[in-house]
């Protein structure tokens, strides 16, 4: 790349570099906005979302609901207390479901298993399910991200 050696037809070299260089610059200049255009921004954390009425959740119910566009599980224990978990498996994001026979939360995709506390107790999931916050407000159940 040194310029002090006179070799070849320098003018053609220069032209080649100039044309190639400008083409590269144009390509990058076009690619960047395109890449940004097709990549949407990050979304805010889910919720709060109304997921139902208190009477729809008798003690001992587990229900699949949507919090914004994310699936979640609302668990009402026998003592009447509420807990909610994101229903997105921490392995590869399949939707988990409640298995009444085994009283646990299961992911069918790669046989992941979670306890009713959302703890990952079997299969590939690396982390517990994300816990969501449940508030009961005048008979409506509201679920939102914690914190």
């Amino acid at each position: 790349m040194s310029n002090d050696e006179p070799k070849g037809p320098p003018r053609r070299d220069f032209l080649g570099i100039a044309v190639g260089g400008s083409a590269a610059v144009f390509a990058v200049a076009a690619a960047y906005p395109v890449a940004r255009f097709i990549e949407p921004g990050t979304r805010p954390r889910p919720g709060p979302a109304v997921v139902g009425k208190l009477i729809e959740f008798p003690p001992g119910t587990v229900r699949s609901v949507m919090v914004d566009d994310r699936p979640a599980l609302v668990v009402r224990a026998q003592d009447g207390s509420f807990r909610a978990f994101s229903a997105i498996c921490t392995h590869l994001q399949c939707v988990v479901g409640y298995s009444p026979e085994r009283n646990q939360i299961e992911c069918p995709c790669h046989r992941g298993v979670y306890s009713m506390d959302g703890l990952n107790i079997g299969g590939p999931p690396p982390r517990p399910l994300e816990e969501l916050q449940v508030t009961v407000n005048e008979g409506t159940i509201i679920v939102s991200a914690v914190g």
Binding site: P71, C94, V95, V96, C107, P108, H110, R111, P124
Partner: peptide, 28 residues
């Protein structure tokens, strides 16, 4: 139905080897 658990999510045949590795690999 996004609320339902993902049953029947067996991948197409050409991803089966990969699926098997993903399914049986340790967490770390």
């Amino acid at each position: 139905d996004p609320r339902l658990s993902s049953t029947g999510a067996m991948p197409p045949w050409y991803f089966l080897p990969f699926h098997q590795i993903v399914r049986s690999s340790p967490r770390e």
